[in-house]
Amino acid sequence: MRIGYFLSSEEYTPTQLIEQATLAQDAGFASLWISDHFHPWNDEQGQGPFVWSLIGALSQVVTIPVTTAVTCPIQRIHPAITAQAAATSAVLHEGRFVLGVGTGEALNEHVTGERWPSAGERLEMLEESVAVMRELWQGGFVSHRGRHFTVDQARLYTLPDQPPQVYVSAFGPKAIDVAARIADGYISTMPDGDLVTRYREKGGKGPAQGGFKGSWAPTEEEAVTTAYRLWPNAAVPGELSQVLPSPRHFEQASQLVTEEMIRDAIVCGPDPAGHREQIRAYEKAGFDEIYIANTGPHYRELIEMYRREFL
């Protein structure tokens, strides 16, 4: 099981994210995830830096692989522009960049004023988008007029030696089937072995990456309080995370979340036992890589705990 570190763009400033990345690499983490958000989930988290600027900056301070977890290349940013950003990122990271993609959340994608499509339509858009990007990564001029996207005589001049790998995030059977068809790897934030099995049985290739959140603090109670203040959305159920359009709507929905629910959703406190249990759950489910994100100010302590206990 490879262990990586998850950079949460919703919560930390660009400078803090760069610091976390360097600390994680020095501690022995194998790779990095970085989230791609326009908005945080709530105002308490308070950040929303542009991920592509950060990925460029990361290329100058780390040499471990970086994966977006995840980018939505179907609405806020056209797939041709995403393809250009990913190609440049792969060049800067000397082939160690992976484009993780998914169907996104209205929270981030509605900002252009376009209609927020249904889940099924977004899956169609994602599949077409990945095909467009892969064609652009082959070089030469591309013109495309599909059901959802148009590309007119576009050519990427800055390309890596090998096209970026594309990993797909999926949480339901239909999405898993699309991922198995188009992905170079699978991404999830649930240790669900049935989904990994379905991905493999449907022909899915490459590694399965999973991620979870921890909240390190000197005491478990302080960690729970911090996680509840910053990430109550972690326990918001169902499809709300995909359809609510604003941080204030997540704040309203999070009023239904209790501290006990957060205690179940996020590993809280200084004891490594809860982290070990989560890692084993993902390993048992068939994941090849696991990424841990810290919640709150004590990211140095969490990284040090992982260096000492797991890396």
Rank of each mutant, 00 (worst) to 15 (best):
L99T: 09
G100W: 07
G100I: 02
V101Q: 07
G102I: 09
G102V: 09
T103C: 12
G104V: 02
E105T: 08
L107Q: 04
E109W: 09
H110Y: 12
V111C: 03
T112A: 03
T112L: 13
T112I: 14
E114K: 05
E114Q: 06
R115T: 11
W116I: 14
S118R: 13
S118L: 11
A119C: 09
E121K: 05
E121Q: 06
L123R: 09
M125V: 05
E127V: 03
A131S: 15
M133L: 01
R134E: 15
R134F: 06
E135W: 14
L136N: 10
W137D: 07
W137V: 05
G139P: 00
F141H: 11
V142K: 10
S143N: 03
S143Q: 02
H144C: 09
R145A: 08
R145N: 09
G146F: 00
G146R: 00
G146P: 01
H148P: 02
H148G: 03
F149E: 08
T150N: 12
T150G: 11
D152G: 08
D152K: 11
D152L: 07
Q153K: 10
R155M: 14
Y157S: 12
T158D: 11
L159H: 13
L159Q: 13
P160M: 15
D161S: 11
D161T: 11
P163V: 08
P163G: 15
P163R: 05
Q165A: 13
V166L: 03
Y167E: 15
S169P: 00
F171S: 02
K174I: 00
A175N: 03
I176V: 15
I176H: 14
D177G: 14
V178N: 07
V178P: 00
V178R: 14
A179K: 13
A180W: 12
A180C: 05
A183G: 06
D184G: 04
D184T: 05
Y186R: 06
S188D: 08
T189V: 04
M190F: 06
M190W: 08
P191W: 13
P191C: 11
D192W: 05
D192C: 00
G193R: 07
D194R: 08
L195Q: 14
T197D: 11
R198N: 09
R198Q: 13
Y199K: 02
E201P: 08
G203C: 05
G204W: 14
P207S: 14
P207I: 10
P207Y: 12
P207M: 13
A208R: 07
Q209T: 08
G210S: 04
G210K: 03
G211C: 07
F212V: 12
S215H: 10
W216Y: 13
A217F: 11
A217H: 12
P218F: 00
P218Y: 00
P218H: 00
T219W: 01
A223V: 09
V224R: 10
V224P: 13
